[in-house]
């Protein structure tokens, strides 16, 4: 099957420093590709470029054959790209249900005048979004919290809420930025299953995750970044034996121990 998302020679600099440099890989439908690397390797920056939050300095992003380099996030969303955030980006003062309903924006949006006058068309769109959102909340185990203000939820619950919101777009490719960070073993396993299940339904998944066990368990393909550059790529078994990868990780661990 041909690649859904292709990244070629992607790079960006902040104040002269190359945060990401010449990174390339491809993701096919139903495939789980993980990006790993030490802190500060440029994983989140890479995500931000692919999802249109940052304008890439160099390189190309192709989505389903279309060049989408530097395209605005809302246009990418319309093309089936959805994501979550490492530092949660929850709509804090909205309810849990409303957060996921916001994920249905592309399906539920309509003329603002219809919304102002509460026309039947507007009510119908909202009702459809609501029922879709409830289904998704059930899928991530948050249906009981639907009416609560999102800001009051636990960290692990918020992580799942973000996944539900991202799934509301019915994405063709889903970018997950550390979905299991800060979650306990049980929650991690739940997220683990959820991701595998989503992938089985044909969605391409690009994952940034620090939990190596999880990465090795569910990934089809792993890309390793260090200092903004791709140092290795391959299936999990190959990556875990790669000397450059081991050096990069050991190097940082040694540095951490000293610091």
């Amino acid at each position: 099957m041909s690649a859904l998302l292709t990244v070629e020679g992607l790079g960006i600099s902040f104040g002269g420093l190359k945060a990401v440099d010449e990174v390339g890989f491809a993701v096919r439908p139903g495939e789980i590709v993980s990006i790993i690397g030490p802190n500060g390797a440029g994983k989140t920056t890479l995500f931000n470029m692919i999802s249109g939050v940052y304008l890439p300095g160099r390189g190309r992003v192709t989505l389903n054959g279309e060049d989408v380099t530097g395209m605005e996030p809302h246009l990418l969303a319309a093309r089936g790209l959805s994501r979550t955030f490492q530092n949660l980006q929850i709509f804090q003062s909205m309810t849990v249900l409303e957060n996921v309903m916001a994920g249905f924006h592309l399906k539920e949006r309509g003329p603002v005048l219809a919304d102002l006058f509460n026309l039947p068309s507007s009510r119908r769109r909202a009702a459809e979004a609501a029922s879709g959102a409830i289904e998704l909340l059930a899928r991530v185990g948050l249906d009981k919290a639907a009416g609560r203000e999102a800001g009051n939820l636990s960290y692990g619950a918020l992580k799942r809420l973000e996944i539900a919101r991202a799934l509301a777009l019915s994405p063709r490719i889903l970018l997950l930025d550390e979905p299991a960070a800060g979650c306990n073993a049980v929650e991690t396993e739940e997220i683990d299953h959820l991701i595998a299940e989503v992938a089985r339904s044909g969605v391409a998944i690009l994952l940034v995750e620090h939990d190596m066990k999880m990465v090795m368990r569910i990934s089809n393909h792993v890309v390793v970044l260090d200092h903004g550059q791709k140092i290795a790529e391959g299936d999990p078994a190959k990556i875990s034996r790669d000397p450059a990868v081991i050096a990069a990780y050991l190097g940082t661990e040694a540095a951490d121990a000293e610091g």
């Binding site: 939050v53 809302h74 969303a77 319309a78 003062s93 909205m94 924006h105 991202a166």
Partner: peptide, 11 residues
């Protein structure tokens, strides 16, 4: 609530 999140859901 979060402009960047709103944009990524297609707003």
């Amino acid at each position: 609530g979060s402009e960047v999140a709103a944009r990524t859901v297609g707003v």
